[in-house]
Amino acid sequence: MAERESRTGGSIDVGGRYDPIEVLGILAAALFWGWLGLRWLNDWFGGLFVREGQAFLPPSTFEFLPALAFAVEFAPELAAGVWLTVLLTIVGIALGFPIAIVLAGARVYGRTTRWVALGYIELVRGTPLLAQLFVLYYGLGLSSFIRELPGVGTVSVIPEQAVWVAMIGFTINSAAYQAEYLRGAIESVDPGQLRAARAIGLSQIDGIRYVVLPQALRYAIPGWTNELIYLIKYSSLAAFITVPELFNRASSIASENFRYLALFSLAGLFYLALVLTATNLTSRLEDRVAIPGLARRDERLRERSQ
């Protein structure tokens, strides 16, 4: 009957047949991340396979194609920067997330806490990220404080102090942006459901926890994807507080050999690969947690516009 048909609506499986473009994409992703993984392992353990920053194969192997030889020569150093880019992004979004939940909850359900949350969110969203990093790094001198902590800068696995400052900055920043996405998602859950939860005797907190949040978190995924992409790109600003992430490395190599275009194109490709991976993963996540019978938000919008 009509209501049963919708079950098959959201499926992406094309009856076991493989889409050649999708297969190519998966292969490319496996190659890229496999190579990155090996590079990182190599560098963390002080040159497991080759010397730190040196290509697995000598660039001269690719002399027939100068662009490729160039890429092979400098990609290893950029790969080390990609590690920090990925680290900053993941830490920013992961640590910002629980703070964002509290902020969004306060913003929607709080009384006095609503104003505290609003103030925080507006202040962070109303000032440039670079200025925030300056406050933490130069203004508060956080880095010299972190330098005193045990292990920092001496044990190779623990990143140096500037990285810590950047992680704190991105967490503070991302919490505010994620809170706004979450607030929108919470407000899009029909309030009647919370009323129904209260009507069977659940407390306000339990109603939010078991009924509102599970849905709001799903609705927040598109916003969350935006935030992830934002962080990948804006983690480049950590360069200005000395963090040797992807952009910083490309920039400092270019200042030696003046091949700006080539290096930034290479770095751009890395950023593109990160962004594509991120959007792909969140899109898969969204499909996986989709509520049967309910169209995904972008599909709903599309339907409405037709």
């Binding site: 300056f134 406050v135 130069y138 508060l140 001198g141």
Partner: peptide
């Protein structure tokens, strides 16, 4: 400009950065 200033007067870093952050905030607001 804030950077140029606080490089000159390293005891006023926080004041300068907070001041310009306030300006940015007032602008966006």
């Amino acid at each position: 400009r804030s950077y140029d200033l606080f490089v000159q007067r390293t005891t006023a870093v926080l004041e300068i950065v907070l001041f310009i952050s306030l300006l940015y905030f007032l602008l966006t607001f």
